[in-house]
């Protein structure tokens, strides 16, 4: 069996974000990208451990993104991925997750894919939409919020453990299947320096997205962002007026709930 892991390089969590001149996204100037979002790294680690346990012959890594996404793929190869495929977009192409899923589906379709692993969600848009949309385009089952995965190989069903609010479920699922990991193996490996040097010699294919998408039936809908906004700068705290501690608590909770919407 062979696995495909989908990855997306995203800005570092502590990046200072600014609105781009276009107003629809952030300004990439000065933003540092993590080679893969944390969740994707966990997904890749899971795939590599399964491969090391004998479940897969090959783990391939796919990304849809601008040329700089190649660095993410190289990192994935240095972690232990066998081959990479970059479906290349232009740096200023705005990709919404639904559209990405359609392109990604055609890329994955061209590879053996008994298991397709995706991270829980990307670290930037945090949409978590790609996994099941990918399953739909590929016409195969998909499961999200997966907390554990057992693959015995040889085409036998996978054991999938997933989180639901009503309890944890253990499912038996025949491959091929798309799995979106809630959390993958803890502590993804850091590529060693020798493996970074070796990864340079692993195959990494690049294809323009227009070509990949031309294989897709029909034109998928695009819904790119119309506006990107940052919260207004802090101007000092709104101090709660109160007569009694209970009143302070009620007022604060109301603000957090209705104004800040964080409760």
């Amino acid at each position: 069996m062979e696995a495909v892991v989908c990855i997306k390089p995203v800005p570092e969590a502590d990046s200072r974000l600014r609105v781009a001149a276009s107003g629809v996204t952030y300004d990439p100037e000065g933003v540092r990208y993590t080679l893969n979002s944390t969740y994707d790294e966990a997904a890749l680690e899971e795939a590599l451990r399964l491969k090391e346990a004998g479940a897969f012959e090959k783990v391939r890594v796919v990304s849809v993104g601008p040329p700089r996404a190649e660095e993410g793929l190289r990192y994935a190869l240095a972690m232990g991925g066998d081959e990479g495929l970059l479906v290349e977009t232009r740096p200023d192409d705005l990709l919404d997750p639904g559209f990405t899923a359609a392109v990604l589906a055609e890329a994955v379709r061209s590879l053996p894919h008994d298991l397709v692993l995706v991270g829980r969600r990307a670290g930037d848009d945090e949409a978590g939409v790609v996994g099941s949309a990918l399953g739909e385009h590929l016409g195969i089952p998909s499961f999200a919020f997966v907390t554990g995965l057992t693959v015995s190989g040889g085409g036998s069903p996978l054991k999938v453990r997933r989180f639901t609010e009503a309890g944890e479920e253990l499912l038996s699922v025949p491959p091929p299947v798309v799995i979106s990991l809630l959390k993958g193996a803890q502590d993804p490996r850091t590529p060693t320096l020798p493996n970074i040097l070796k990864a340079r010699r692993k195959p990494l294919l690049r294809e323009p997205w227009t070509e990949v998408l031309s294989r897709h039936p029909g034109a998928p809908v695009r819904a790119p962002a119309m506006r990107f906004e940052l919260p207004p700068p802090r101007t000092g705290a709104h101090l709660v007026d109160y007569q009694s501690p209970a009143e302070a608590a009620e007022k604060l909770v109301k603000l957090l709930r209705e104004e800040a919407k964080v409760l």
Binding site: A101, A127, G128, V129, G131, S132, G135, A144, F163, T164
Partner: peptide, 25 residues
């Protein structure tokens, strides 16, 4: 906004051919 809703949005929007997103505020 439960796990079910968040998982279904990708599949259903791809199936309906319209737009889809998660975590609407």
């Amino acid at each position: 906004g439960s796990t079910m809703g968040r998982e279904l949005v990708g599949r259903l929007s791809a199936r309906l051919g319209g737009g889809g997103t998660s975590e609407a505020l």
